[in-house]
Amino acid sequence: MEKYDIPLTSAEMSCLWSTYVADSMSICILKYFRKIIEDKEIKQVVEHALDLSQQHVEMIRDIFTAETIPVPQGFTDADVNLNAKRLFSDSFCLHYVKKMTKAGLMINASVLPNIYRNDVLSFYSKMLTSTIELNTETIQLLLEKGLASRPPQIPKPKQVEFIHKQAFLFDFLGKSRPLTGIEITNLCNNLETSVLVAALGTAFAQTASSEQVREYMLRGRDIAKKHIDVFSSYLKNADLPAPTSHGHEIEDTTEALFSDKLMMFHFSFISDVGVGNYGMSISQSQRSDLVLDYSRLLIEILKFAEDGANIMISEGWLEQPPMAVDRKKLAEEK
């Protein structure tokens, strides 16, 4: 790997660091999926996703080594028991890849505008392109197998119209206007994430080694179920379908599969994705009741994430990301 005279910026270093840790986690999960999946087409998608994650960590390791930056510990084969019994169905594995690919698209798209150095810019540009290809492949297979949960249809507008009443924004006397297309899209997206979290919470609680981690996973599952009820109610009141549960795709094994450290990090990662999704949903919602619900649910996720971080810190599981220099501390130590 060529060493550049231009030093990495805070954005470049931090994004590479975060990508390395997240992809090292994905490698553990996807290796297990590859081991248990019986459907050849789903296994092919998982192998594609695994290959991309492995490429990412190798490229970041090369960049960090060239820059004499410590490579994060992240996650290794020690964090997964590849000989564990089947915990997830094949279809769940495909849904998981789809949801994580969608999260990757959002994260990578937000990273690119902050990158300037050519090698890092090239890395994230290729990463975004390959993630788009994986997303397309996953969607196609979900459609072919009848597993896709597409956002519902709404009528085509018959003419151009303008808004003339503030009731479009505010809920007066409990009478709300119909949902807009983007509001429906965000509700479905957040529902899909919550459905996945509820299933993962169940699976992780069954297989966690620590009582503390087990209770945290069950708490995450219960929070996700509450959010599912809130979002589903909006769709049901509009006579629109809501995504279904993945709970039936979790087997009854309690054998340890992933390390408690990995499962806690995974929930931290999904919480971060949820915070971003809810923030975007707030900015794109024009109904006051939706904004209020997103706002209070966002606070709940933030509190849940904080408690998870405290558990990880107390157990020595939370790696410190690249940080700015504490000038005040340096001055005091002189």
Rank of each mutant, 00 (worst) to 15 (best):
285 S>N: 06
224 A>S: 01
274 G>W: 04
268 S>I: 02
250 I>N: 00
230 V>P: 11
267 F>L: 03
251 E>N: 11
250 I>H: 02
219 R>G: 14
236 K>S: 11
177 R>F: 13
275 V>S: 00
241 P>T: 06
250 I>C: 04
227 H>Y: 00
264 M>T: 01
240 L>F: 10
284 Q>P: 05
240 L>Q: 03
276 G>H: 12
227 H>K: 04
209 S>M: 12
269 F>A: 09
208 A>H: 02
226 K>R: 09
232 S>L: 02
186 N>D: 02
188 C>H: 06
227 H>M: 00
281 S>L: 07
293 D>A: 10
215 E>Q: 08
292 L>P: 02
210 S>G: 05
185 T>M: 11
241 P>M: 13
226 K>V: 03
284 Q>T: 14
290 L>T: 04
211 E>F: 07
239 D>P: 11
222 D>G: 04
219 R>D: 07
257 L>V: 04
225 K>E: 04
291 V>M: 15
264 M>G: 03
193 T>H: 15
299 I>T: 14
272 D>A: 15
205 A>Q: 07
303 K>C: 07
304 F>R: 08
222 D>M: 03
286 Q>A: 14
263 M>W: 09
193 T>D: 01
175 K>H: 05
302 L>H: 08
213 V>I: 04
244 T>I: 12
182 I>T: 14
209 S>D: 14
309 A>I: 10
300 E>C: 06
203 A>R: 13
218 L>M: 10
227 H>R: 00
296 R>C: 08
307 D>Y: 10
311 I>N: 14
225 K>F: 06
